[in-house]
Simulated scan of single mutants.
Amino acid sequence: MSGYREEDFLQLSGLQHFAFCRRQWALIHIEQQWQENLRTVEGDIFHRRAHNDQARERRGDVLILRGLSVSSPTLGISGQCDVVEFHADPDGVSLRGEDGLWFPFPIEYKRGAPKSHRADELQLCAQAMCLEEMLCCAVPEGALFYGETRRRTLVSFSEKLRETVRGMLEEMHQFYRRGHTPKVQRSKSCNACSLQALCLPALMKGTDVDAYLRQAMEAEP
C-alpha cells in the first residue's frame, strides 16, 4: 500500500464502524450523519473518564499516556489511543523527556462487554500499527478493557488480523474517494445501531437515504 497524504487520512476510529457495518461507516464518515442513542452516550462518557486523568502518569516502571495522538501515512489514518502503557524494557525505544527505554502496550476502553465480532480488536490493532510506524518498533499485543466486566482482554496482533486491517482500510479509502454509501444489508445488529432511524433498514433495501427522502417529499399532498 502506497503512502497517503495527511489531507487524505481517515479517522482511525472509523475502522470499528466499518467492521460493524460498512453502511454505518459511510453514513457517519462520508455523509456526515450521526444520531445519539443510550449506547453512544454511555460510551462517550466512559471514554471521557478514561481521558480525564492527567495525560502522563508514572507508576514505577510503567509510564501511562492518555489520549495519545497517532497516525500512519502507510495506512492513511490518524486518531487517538485511549491509553498507552510504556513499560521499562532494555529492548524498548527512547521517549522524549524520559530516561531509559520503553515498550508500548496500547489499551482501548469499551463501555460494554466483549463482542462476538472483531471490530474492537481491529481498531486496537490499527492503533498498534500506527505506534509501530511512529516509534519504529514492534507492538505484538495490547488489551481491551470492558466496562461491564471491568477486566482486560489481551489481544495478539497476528498477521491475519493485520491483513484484515490493511484490507478494510484500503476498502474504506476506495469508498471515501468515490463518495460511495453501500446499500442496506439488514441484520440483527441494526436494532442496536444509533443510525437506525436515518438508515431505515426496514424500508431501504434498494435505495439510499437521499432517494428515500425525495420520494417521501414528492408523495406529500
Results as ranks from 00 to 15, higher is better:
residue 150 R to D: 14
residue 121 E to V: 02
residue 127 Q to H: 09
residue 33 Q to Y: 10
residue 115 K to S: 15
residue 34 W to N: 03
residue 63 L to Y: 04
residue 117 H to M: 12
residue 97 G to I: 03
residue 170 E to N: 09
residue 158 S to A: 06
residue 16 Q to W: 10
residue 202 A to Q: 13
residue 81 C to V: 07
residue 65 L to D: 06
residue 22 R to H: 08
residue 168 M to H: 12
residue 3 G to W: 14
residue 93 V to I: 08
residue 137 C to A: 10
residue 101 L to E: 03
residue 26 A to R: 03
residue 75 L to F: 05
residue 188 K to I: 12
residue 44 D to P: 07
residue 176 Y to W: 11
residue 15 L to C: 04
residue 190 C to A: 06
residue 94 S to P: 06
residue 17 H to V: 05
residue 201 P to Y: 08
residue 79 G to M: 03
residue 95 L to Q: 00
residue 79 G to F: 03
residue 15 L to D: 04
residue 50 A to P: 01
residue 2 S to L: 11
residue 109 Y to A: 04
residue 221 P to S: 08
residue 116 S to M: 09
residue 6 E to T: 07
residue 32 Q to M: 12
residue 132 E to V: 04
residue 96 R to I: 09
residue 123 Q to F: 05
residue 152 R to D: 11
residue 22 R to S: 07
residue 151 R to E: 13
residue 22 R to Y: 01
residue 103 F to A: 10
residue 160 K to R: 10
residue 124 L to I: 04
residue 9 F to P: 05
residue 25 W to I: 04
residue 124 L to M: 00
residue 22 R to G: 08
residue 134 M to W: 00
residue 212 Y to Q: 08
residue 93 V to Q: 07
residue 156 S to L: 09
residue 21 C to T: 04
residue 49 R to E: 14
residue 18 F to G: 02
residue 211 A to S: 15
residue 185 Q to V: 10
residue 20 F to K: 15
residue 16 Q to D: 12
residue 105 F to R: 01
residue 102 W to Q: 03
residue 178 R to D: 09
residue 157 F to H: 02
residue 91 D to T: 06
residue 151 R to M: 13
residue 177 R to H: 09
residue 111 R to G: 11
residue 72 S to Q: 01
residue 162 R to N: 00
residue 130 C to S: 02
residue 177 R to M: 07
residue 184 V to E: 01
residue 126 A to G: 06
residue 158 S to R: 03
residue 23 R to M: 02
residue 110 K to R: 02
residue 169 L to F: 01
residue 15 L to K: 02
residue 93 V to C: 03
residue 132 E to W: 00
residue 6 E to V: 09
residue 100 G to W: 03
residue 167 G to W: 02
residue 160 K to C: 10
residue 2 S to Q: 15
residue 13 S to K: 14
residue 48 R to N: 14
residue 15 L to W: 01
residue 164 T to E: 13
residue 177 R to Y: 09
residue 121 E to C: 06
residue 79 G to S: 05
residue 166 R to M: 09
residue 175 F to A: 02
residue 73 P to K: 04
residue 117 H to W: 06
residue 156 S to P: 04
residue 204 M to Q: 13
residue 5 R to G: 11
residue 79 G to W: 01
residue 172 M to R: 00
residue 77 I to M: 08
residue 52 N to R: 15
residue 73 P to E: 06
residue 77 I to D: 04
residue 191 N to P: 08
residue 162 R to L: 05
residue 105 F to Y: 07
residue 73 P to C: 04
residue 61 D to L: 12
residue 98 E to G: 07
residue 216 A to M: 11
residue 59 R to H: 11
residue 213 L to S: 06
residue 193 C to H: 00
residue 152 R to F: 10
residue 47 H to D: 12
residue 113 A to I: 01
residue 186 R to C: 13
residue 175 F to S: 03
residue 129 M to F: 00
residue 9 F to C: 06
residue 31 E to M: 14
residue 117 H to N: 14
